[in-house]
Design a binder for these strands. Structure first.
Lengths: 257, 257
DNA sequence: GGTCGGCATCTTGCATGCAAGAAAATTTGA
DNA sequence: TCAAATTTTCTTGCATGCAAGATGCCGACC
């Protein structure tokens, strides 16, 4: 399965899983399983190209095939897995072209969110965004990466929510999955902190001023900047690891043996 | 189940289904089921608010619960069904607010598609778009509604494809489901034919000229115009049918009995 | 008469069983 | 010795079974 040595491929990995919620009072195995697998994929623990084996997964997750199968179907729809013609599923590779494509889409989506949000936003909501911004600053000051990213995402998400457009939020969530995955894949990010924070400030200003056009513009350039940095780092990483590239594709399946 | 009399609710409806593909050589029950149910929902045969009963569905589709359950999960993700807290699924109502929200998103999505497509588009592809445009004209001239809509959708879809942005296409497909559903729901559409065709011509011109900005602009206004007409007609229909509004919610479930 | 509690039924969630298609391994023919 | 074919094993798709919540009904109590 590509990570660590091949003797205990999934076993070790799945140990790192968020334990399936202590008080899992029945009836949520599906959702749990989706969340768990999604996590593994987004964080890169399950490497692109890894072939999923239902039975193996069942053993490791200690559940039966039914919820696993359903979760797989779900993740295929999300684009995190890809269905092979033979009906098996592999972790989809995160294509560089796809990430580039993602940039364009996320840019217009968040841009629109900014425009719409600026129109309706309440004082309270502005304050809330400000709070999230400063929360991010706090984590930045403390050099806390995970917190920083979480706050950053919350900032963006909240703006999309405040657009008041449910469809936009829905689409954004779908896109965010892929963005997160790309983020995790390139593990260099600290570079743009300073500018990112300045850009957030501008977004906040535009929202405060209820300047729709400016908010949209600020968000678009911020998102584009950020994601293009991401692509650059991914590209660098990929060319650096060129010889390794061919590796992660063929195993899985028989790897347990 | 809201349609026809309650004695043979699903039975009659499902008879209208596209027969499950004669040569269904095993292994595609899931996809088939999704497609069939999706069709029923998009075309409004399964009315918003209808509660789905797994066993009933199984009986009617003559398959077991497993693929039905999977299909339901899939459609929930697509937003065509909604999961109740009790774990049952109902056909999601198509909220007017949601359609309005849809407008905004589809507008920017297709606008972006136009901009991107205009940049890369080949002569061959321009010709193809032209062909689709004239195919639509043909159906228009013949007053063939279904053909008209199909050609119209193909025209738009192809432009999104030609954007070369796989993510954009993915998102567009998701949105198109909901748009189609709204279209079917308001069954008045012939009004804008003339202008729609003119707008298509402008889009085609802009693409031919490889004028990215103009193509984007043309698509945005075309999409917005079209969908706003749709909303207007939906709104009219809804207020007209006000007394009926409360009806389609409680039945289903026990309705077979 | 209305409401609350207990019982019967229904509906769904998850597990498991079986068979068909795919992959792998072994044998057999050149 | 290599390759093709056959057999064996694995993997998945679908069906079914069982048990736990959820729902609805009815009677009893207030």
């Amino acid at each position: 399965m590509t990570i660590s040595d091949d003797t205990t491929p999934l076993a070790a990995l799945l140990a790192q899983l968020p334990p399936p919620e202590p008080g899992k009072r029945k009836g949520h195995l599906h959702g749990n399983t989706v969340a768990r697998l999604r996590n593994l994929i987004v964080t890169g623990v399950l490497a692109p190209g890894t072939k999923l084996n239902e039975r193996e997964l069942c053993d490791q997750l200690a559940i039966s095939r039914t919820p696993v199968r359903e979760a797989i179907k779900t993740l295929i729809q999300d684009g995190l897995l890809r269905a092979l013609p033979n009906h098996s599923a592999v972790v989809s590779e995160l294509d560089l072209d796809e990430v580039v494509a993602l940039i364009e889409v996320v840019t217009v989506v968040e841009g629109l969110a900014g425009e719409l949000a600026a129109k309706h936003i309440s004082d309270e909501a502005v304050a809330e965004i400000g709070m999230l911004h400063y929360r991010m600053l706090l984590h930045h000051a403390r050099d806390e990466l995970p917190g920083y990213f979480e706050a950053n995402k919350a900032f963006h998400r909240r703006i999309v929510e405040l657009s008041g457009n449910s469809i936009l939020l829905w689409v954004w969530e779908l896109l965010a999955l892929r963005v997160d995955r790309a983020r995790f894949s390139s593990n260099l990010w600290p570079t743009r902190w300073r500018t990112a924070i300045e850009e957030h400030q501008q977004i906040l200003d535009a929202l405060t001023a209820r300047d729709s056009a400016r908010a949209g513009q600020a968000l678009r350039s911020h998102v584009r900047n950020g994601l293009e940095g991401l692509v650059a780092s991914l590209r660098a990483k990929q060319t650096a690891a060129q010889p390794e590239t061919e590796r992660g594709k063929k195993q899985g399946g028989a790897s347990l043996r």
